[in-house]
Structure formats: C-alpha cells, structure tokens
Simulated assay, not measured.
Amino acid sequence: MKKAGLVLLAIGVLITIFNGVNFVTREKVVDIGSLEISADKNHSVNWSPYLGVVLIVLGGGAYLLAGKKS
C-alpha cells in the first residue's frame, strides 16, 4: 500500500506541474499508385491541475495510513 501511495503521489506531482501533453502523428492525405502524400497532425491532451492535487492528497493519505498499519 505504501508503494501505491508513493506512485499516486508522484503522478499527482507530475500532473500538477505538466498541464498537458502534445504529440504528432503522420496521416496519409493522398495515396494514388506510387504517389503518397502525408501530413503531420498535431494532437494535444490536456487535464486539470485539480486532478493532480486530488492524486497528491489520495497518495499522501494512502502512504500515511499504510505507515500506521505496519
């Protein structure tokens, strides 16, 4: 339980610091015989920093509760 609490705590800190992730995919636009034209498409995944705070609280609570039981 302590390890799970530490993992949640670390993920919460990262989510609070980084508010989103951007990545690029390549798509085929035209494919006619031997002619292929592709384009890069940008995607972004954003989340609320409140989610990170909630995970920090849950992870810290799980870590502290697991420490008292041992």
Rank of each mutant, 00 (worst) to 15 (best):
L8N: 03
I15E: 03
V54S: 14
T16V: 08
E36W: 01
L55M: 15
N19G: 15
L65N: 12
N42W: 07
S48N: 14
V53D: 04
T16Q: 10
K41Q: 10
T25V: 13
G67W: 05
L8W: 07
S44K: 08
K69M: 06
I15D: 02
L8R: 03
E27I: 13
A4G: 02
K68L: 12
A10Y: 03
Y50D: 06
L51N: 07
K41A: 07
G61K: 10
A10V: 14
I32K: 06
F23C: 05
L35F: 15
I37P: 03
L9Q: 04
G61W: 14
S34Y: 10
L51A: 15
G12E: 06
L9K: 04
I32W: 11
K28P: 00
I56T: 10
N46S: 12
G12C: 05
V45R: 00
K2V: 07
V29C: 01
W47D: 12
A39V: 10
S48I: 04
G61S: 13
H43N: 11
G60I: 06
L65F: 14
A62H: 00
K41L: 12
G61T: 13
L64N: 07
V24P: 00
I32N: 04
A39N: 10
H43V: 02
L9W: 11
F23L: 06
S48F: 10
R26K: 10
P49G: 13
L51G: 13
A39Y: 04
K69G: 04
K28D: 03
E27P: 00
S34Q: 11
G59V: 02
L14H: 05
F23I: 04
E27W: 09
L51M: 14
D31N: 07
G59F: 05
N42H: 07
F23A: 07
L64S: 12
M1D: 09
S48A: 10
V45S: 03
K69W: 04
G52P: 03
G5Y: 05
F18P: 00
S38K: 09
P49Q: 13
A62Q: 04
N46Q: 09
K41G: 00
A4H: 04
V7H: 00
L8V: 02
A39F: 05
G59A: 08
A4W: 05
V24Y: 12
K41S: 06
M1C: 07
N19H: 13
A62F: 11
G59E: 07
K68N: 09
L64F: 14
N22E: 14
Y63W: 13
W47N: 12
